[in-house]
Design a binder for these strands. Structure first.
Lengths: 238, 238
DNA sequence: TAGATTGTTAATCGATTAACAATC
DNA sequence: TAGATTGTTAATCGATTAACAATC
């Protein structure tokens, strides 16, 4: 509190790795994509890949890819490329998914049920350990082999299953309230599908998926493209 | 106009607006959030809001909010704030959702069905005009009042319904192929839920939602937090 | 060795923030 | 007018890119 410089968010963190252990947010977001692409290379029994090839498959610039990977350490071989298996392992380790992580899914409505059945979670490092809902009609039913549990027991479930990551798919009206209970129970990461801004303590991470917002962003660009078309048709340059 | 500065990427665009009509990508992404918050203020019959209040509700810095809004024009009133109705209208206009836009949803499986029933699309400017699938078991069935149509007719549907925005919720294995057909049929914006990198021409916009990647990003931060906890417990500061 | 490709540097670009003059 | 709050400037920060020395 005393004399902290404003930007110095996490100065004396754990560190330990080569330079200072810091991996930029933008890099972390791309590591997930690299990992997925490496997985499909591995499936095709490809042993080695250059930054140029891997970058093309991931849809990024190769210099950016190399810079991203350099934050993890030096796992490439000059003149050769990256060993697919080694790099896969290193990225998985960095992302913390070498052990499967247990997540709780809160809200088993329309979207929640789809998420409960999403195979991509399991194949990419996550186990849905609990389904939780507030609706008495849903509590006790079985979805994908899991019994839907009562939100009244949320705190106990989080503790028993040692859950630190939750997926929030409740109606917007109750999202903050449920979020508060999750945080109080020990959850420190939340993937939020409810279209509300969640307020959480600074040690809790929230990522949001706002489906309508994604379409609105595309709509903005549609408008821009339509306007460009018109101006071109009219010949109204400048 | 004559001596263009290097940053002047899109100098002679359609423009018309005050400065040069350019809205940064990061700003566009936040406009959707501002619009949602303004909507809830409007519902509560609140007429006016300051940048400080609106920023707090949207979870951003108030200077950033004012800068974002300044790209749309000058709609605030010094000493007073922003008129909720006016600002709502202006943002909606900028995003191009003053008219409802028709979207096609391709792939009516697990996730696709949930998206078909997602109320947030309609309430925030979008109409699902067509459900399309390749599975003969699904084609012809009715979901949320819409008949699922055969992907063989994709091109005709896109043309008939004048669709330019598509939501792609197919299996990853066919996503690129379906994407190519959508683009050839005239679609210029795609919201992609399939965990693959789509290759599209430069005039087509793609936004991706990778659910497992979101969890992996949270997992990375969990690892970091756990490491910090351990180092603190051990007293290994520095 | 010759060719290929990494890891890093330095330049550039874009996004965020604090501060404050303008003005309601 | 006095108080409040916008719109903008300038500084800073973080992310991306091209280029190339290091090195397999």
């Amino acid at each position: 509190m005393s004399a902290e410089r404003p930007t110095d968010r996490a100065a004396s963190r754990v560190a330990g790795v080569a330079t200072d252990g810091r991996v930029p947010d933008a890099t972390v977001a791309r590591l997930a994509t690299y990992l997925r692409v490496l997985g499909s290379l591995g499936d095709r029994a490809i042993m080695t890949v250059s930054s140029e090839e891997l970058a093309a498959l991931a849809g990024v610039n190769s210099a950016l890819l190399r810079k991203d990977l350099s934050f993890l350490g030096s796992y490439g071989i000059r003149g050769v490329g990256y060993h697919v298996a080694t790099l896969t392992e290193e990225i998985a380790r960095t992302l913390g998914i070498t052990v499967h992580r247990s997540v709780a899914l809160i809200g088993v409505g329309n979207l929640g049920q789809a998420l409960a059945g999403y195979a991509g979670f399991a194949s990419r490092g996550f186990r849905i350990a609990a389904l939780i809902d507030a609706d008495p009609m849903r509590v006790g039913t079985t979805i994908r082999g899991l019994v839907v549990r009562d939100i009244a027991d949320l705190e106990g479930i989080v503790a028993d299953e040692q859950i630190t990551i939750a997926v929030l798919a409740t109606p917007a009206s109750v999202a903050q309230e449920v979020c508060d209970r999750l945080v109080a129970a020990g959850v420190t990461s939340i993937l939020n599908f409810a279209p509300v801004v969640l307020n959480v303590p600074s040690d809790v991470d929230v990522r949001k998926v706002d489906l309508a917002a994604e379409l609105q962003i595309l709509s903005f660009h549609e408008t821009r493209k339509a306007a460009a078309d018109i101006s071109r048709a009219v010949g109204a340059e400048r």
